[in-house]
């Protein structure tokens, strides 16, 4: 896929959970400041691949991996994992705010880094919430529990929380699957705005969503990357019959 400079590039990534193969020889580039969507049926390895990008897969001791992934100038394994996860943020399928105040949710990452000054924290809370298009809705109740927010607001809070530590890449694992259409539309608008500043990789099982918001789309099937091209090409005229069958709903 001809495009901008890749921020991340995976080369021949294979991954096993014990004896089960989850990824087979995945080679793909994630271009800078674009939205890259990963689609595919359940169990195709798309979420697993996303989790390799910030080494969340390391948490599972049963995982064995081959190949390598470069982030900017060096392989992921050469980064301190804590530093890596700060720079490659993640938003999960189910909104997972901590049962604390909105303010404490946003500042959690910064506090981990030792930022203590109230004025610094305040500034980041406002800018992150603004970027996540949530500021106006919550500015008067920053000290209230995040659990009181609606599902869509919680998810935007989680995005704001990820943005607060100033990442370069934001990984999103089916971020709208638990949300209603209106909340989904808000998150989609947000993603389109965020790509001005961040590189975004989104796993989605909603093909229309991938079509609406992404620049490039990768189709995974049974642990393999079947096809990766511009979103327009993928949805108008995919090159692989399996992509065609999946996208047109003839898969099954």
């Amino acid at each position: 896929m001809e495009s901008k400079q890749p921020v991340m590039s995976s080369r021949h990534i294979s991954l096993w959970y014990d004896k089960t193969r989850a990824l087979t020889d995945i080679t793909m580039d994630i271009p800078e400041k674009q939205v890259t969507a990963i689609i595919g049926p359940s169990g195709c390895g798309k979420s697993t691949f996303l989790k390799t990008l910030n080494r969340m897969t390391d948490l599972n001791p049963a995982v064995k991996m081959g190949g390598f992934i470069n982030f900017l100038d060096k392989p992921l394994q050469q980064y301190d994992v804590v530093e890596l996860r700060r720079r490659v943020g993640m938003v999960f399928q189910k909104p997972n705010p901590f049962p604390k105040s909105i303010y404490d949710n946003i500042t959690f990452g910064l506090r981990l880094q030792g930022v203590k000054k109230k004025s610094d924290l305040d500034a980041v809370v406002e800018s992150s919430l603004r970027r996540a298009a949530l500021w106006d809705e919550v500015k008067d109740r920053l000290k209230q529990s995040a659990m009181g927010l609606s599902g869509g607001q919680q998810q935007r809070l989680c995005i704001a929380r990820a943005l607060a530590v100033n990442p370069e890449v934001v990984l999103m694992d089916e971020p709208c699957s638990a949300l209603d259409p209106v909340a989904t539309a808000k998150i989609e608008d947000l993603i389109l705005q965020l790509k001005q500043e961040y590189t975004i990789v989104i796993v989605t099982h909603n093909m229309q969503q991938a079509a609406r918001i992404s620049d490039g789309t990768a189709f995974f099937l049974s642990s393999q990357l079947v096809e990766y091209d511009t979103t327009v090409k993928m949805f108008e005229n995919p090159g692989d019959q399996r992509t065609e069958d999946y996208i047109t709903g003839r898969f099954g």
Partner: peptide
């Protein structure tokens, strides 16, 4: 039905 790919064409 939001047709895609060959269906869209």
């Amino acid at each position: 039905q939001q047709p895609m790919a060959a269906d869209l064409r």
